[in-house]
Design a protein around this nucleic acid. Structure first.
Lengths: 333, 333
DNA sequence: AGCAAACCAGTAAGCGGTTACAAATACATA
DNA sequence: TATGTATTTGTAACCGCTTACTGGTTTGCT
């Protein structure tokens, strides 16, 4: 009892016009007389006709789908971006094909190829490490790709971010102003440019301007996991850190709770600043001061940028930096 | 300089075979002589040929894409499910087209139609309120649809869940065992069957067995937002509640922090149990006791079920209930 | 009225694959 | 060697839609 699908032919027959005409009204082509249009629309309505997007895609070479590559949707930083992407995509009649990559080079490439095979019209990539392989794969396709909340030191692709160097620098300065001289820098994988080339730089610059020597023992590289943050307390104490700049909220929550559990009073004895201003910053106790980033907007702007690229509009500014801010909450004095 | 794509024809020509043969080797059809296969594979390799999934989809009427409708990816409960779905989908060579619905009837229906127009092979639906309109739309298509972490009282679609009635009942019993007699039930929209028909029922049953009368004033309906939980403190105090069963972790975090901010010591003066065992339960202080649900697995199993349905395998058990548990943390005594 | 321009609608050739069916080749057996 | 069968491969129709091109109607203007 396969319910057979009705095609453009059925509509054409029923409306006594050619399929070309039906196609025209479906696509809003203006070269159709008003009453013909009406007649066709009525039949479409009556037959509950819905054009087959696959056939359309094949014929027009546009699928109105964009691929979204994300390390892990479960991470609220990325899901926030994804939400912005989806909303704007919907606005422009695109669908998103979402794929988790676990920030794994191999997966990223296989996922990318997969997406390209599906003929997506564009791709939004999140994940901060752009390996040479990946960059090469990016280059090999003519499908526009934009990076969201992710930097590539070589800037081969359009991207939407905030100025991480400056943001970190300013927050570290706040910490310095409070009299801290031993400020820890707790970040994700240094293999990611965003950490090693940008945020760390901001941290160093702030120290430098304050005339405080950079101390490697105050730098902690992690995998951005809550649990890792939790377990950092002893090292932090041993390093005599009195404050920390953390690059991920989950990680920061771990650090916060770990220190608190160790009996350290925050912010009195230890100040902490995090980076992404996700919901988590409000949920922890004490709440966490943070660099504020317009996460949703980063996604939204990236998608908007992508639509322009897909329409072959010329975009002047391919490297968008959105404004950031600082939100003081209870983890700083 | 449009980099032209290479098609199955190019491969056929280059390998001196017909396109049918190429198609066969690409699809792993066994009716191909070993050396022909080799020859074709070499050309595919050499030309870096990747079959056009859209054309394939049109010809074979299978897109290897499944639609995933989710209220909001930003909610960690749903993103956890989504992650399970994606992983299993990838395992079975499917891609997921993700769409946020904001749990809004209108959007859900438009998104559904959209997905169907894209010819997805199946759909996973999350969102607990299945309106008649939506149910009708579900019924109208022959594309298999499974509900993940979402119930429909009328059970018109296969689904994967835990036994919410029982889970809530057991947790409330724990609270009762601790001597609480005024236990609040704080939930999301009652328009969602999962709250009004299942969890509330579990709550009532537990009370009944304990011989405690049901008191409407102890039931709080919200929209599952952190902020709402935060603001519930006065009402909770006024209702003389000494414990609460909460149906969403973000909401619970709000309640927890609200009460704490109001000077109530948890769990000494107020006990709290939440429902989804997401990362949040570990991040709050005190940590939150929770019903444990295999969120990732619910998504994974739902997707696996869907693959069976898409393959037209007969599935005996269309209403999967996964095991749940209880995790005692610091928000209960 | 006559003719060009503007407007509408139809025809048919793809888009890049899958697949039923036919044809060709290989292999086995008598 | 002839014949039957099994195995490979090729041919071509079709999936449902877009769109270039063509031709028929209207409309506007002299």
């Amino acid at each position: 009892m396969e319910k057979q699908t009705i095609t453009i032919y059925d509509v054409a027959r029923e409306a006594n016009v050619s399929m070309a005409t039906v196609s025209r009204v479906v696509n809003g082509n203006t070269n159709v007389k008003a009453d013909t249009r009406k007649k066709v629309m009525d039949v479409i309505e009556k037959l509950d006709y819905r054009p087959n997007a696959v056939a359309r895609g094949l014929a027009s070479k546009k699928t109105t789908s964009v691929g979204v590559i994300v390390p892990d949707v479960t991470n609220i930083y990325f899901s926030s971006l994804a939400r912005g992407i989806d909303d704007v995509a919907t606005m422009y009649k695109y669908n998103i094909i979402l794929a988790n990559s676990d920030a794994n080079d191999q997966k990223e490439i296989s996922v990318l190829n997969n997406l390209l095979a599906k003929q997506v019209d564009g791709i939004i990539f999140m994940g901060n490490e752009i390996t040479d392989n990946l960059r090469a794969a990016f280059q090999r396709t003519r499908v526009p790709i934009v990076l969201a909340g992710s930097v590539d030191e070589q800037n081969t692709n359009p991207s939407v971010n905030i100025d991480y160097v400056k943001a970190v620098k300013e927050e570290v300065k706040v910490l310095l102003d409070h009299g801290n001289t031993r400020i820890a820098f707790i970040c994700g994988p240094m293999s990611q440019a965003i950490n090693s080339k940008f945020r760390l730089l901001g941290y160093k610059e702030a120290l430098k301007e304050a005339g405080i020597p950079y101390d490697e023992n105050l730098v902690f590289e992690t995998n951005n996991k809550y649990r890792e943050g939790l377990e950092l307390k002893d090292q932090l104490i041993e390093a005599k850190a009195t404050a920390a700049m953390v690059t991920d909220d989950e990680l920061a929550a771990g650090v916060l709770n770990g220190m608190t559990d160790a009996g350290i009073v925050i912010p009195k004895q230890f100040e902490l600043v995090t980076s992404n201003d996700t919901k988590l910053t409000e949920i922890t106790r004490p709440t966490m001061s943070s660099i504020t980033q317009p996460l949703y907007d980063i996604g939204a702007v990236a998608m908007r940028l992508l639509t322009k690229l897909m329409d072959k509009e010329t975009v002047e500014d391919k490297e968008v930096l959105l404004p950031f801010g600082m939100m003081k909450r209870d983890s700083t004095r």
